[in-house]
């Protein structure tokens, strides 16, 4: 069952990505991007990362792509909609892409992942097998919102439970704060960059010139 669902999502994700690469119309590219990113969100859910799946949907599909389409609407007028790249570039890009893909796939197939494969939360899943957690998910897997929130606040349930206080891991409080300040800066900076500059004749300059 999981394999079937994975195949559907994986095909949609790869197909969407390839269609983004191939298609020439910007708005269609955005549509295929949505298909691809949405399927990646589905893969996240399949990997028991439900908070990240929801985040992916909310931020990428609902936020970033809408923003991109908005940008397309503001900038695309007639000829700009389909700017074709030269055939030489396409062939070269395709060749380089195929080479990189071959290298990556070769690299990852030559590593024996199975030997170091450990299931996340395996200990936790055994612990909680008998009881049903607050949600109705059959296993203790998948409900990562609380763990992730706690990790961002600097508390690591997956590492620190049962440890003594000297060996606690650090969590992600500092990066979290840095990212939030960064977001604020980006917000201000982007709105400063994107504002429309009115070419109003400056009365001061005119009086100086005359």
């Amino acid at each position: 069952m999981e394999t079937v669902i994975f195949t559907i999502y994986a095909l949609a994700a790869c197909g969407g990505a390839i269609a983004v690469m191939v298609s020439q119309n910007v708005v269609r590219m955005a549509f295929w991007l949505v298909i691809s990113l949405g399927s990646v969100a589905g893969l996240f859910f399949l990997l028991h990362a439900d908070f990240l799946g929801a985040t992916q949907l909310l931020i990428y599909v609902g936020g970033t792509v809408v923003l991109l389409i908005f940008g397309v609407m503001l900038t695309a007028s007639g000829p700009m909609l389909t700017i074709r790249s030269g055939p030489g570039e396409v062939v070269l890009g395709g060749l380089v892409g195929l080479a990189v893909l071959g290298m990556l796939v070769f690299g990852m197939l030559s590593v024996d992942w199975e030997s170091q494969q450990t299931r996340m939360y395996s200990a936790a899943a055994e612990e909680g097998r008998g009881e049903r957690s607050m949600g109705y998910n059959p296993e203790g897997e998948g409900n990562t919102a609380r763990r992730l929130g706690a990790a961002l606040l600097g508390v690591r349930f997956d590492r620190d439970l049962g440890r003594n206080s000297e060996t606690l891991s650090t969590g992600y409080l500092l990066p979290f704060e840095i990212v939030s300040v960064h977001l604020l800066v980006v917000l201000v900076g982007a709105s400063y960059l994107a504002r429309t500059k009115r070419r109003r004749p400056n009365p001061l300059e005119e009086s100086l010139e005359s």
Partner: peptide
């Protein structure tokens, strides 16, 4: 589908409608 992120996911899906 009872998820711990139910509300968040609901809002996320609703935002797809805009698209």
């Amino acid at each position: 589908q009872a998820l711990d992120v139910g509300l968040f996911l609901g809002l996320a899906i609703l935002s797809l409608e805009v698209l």
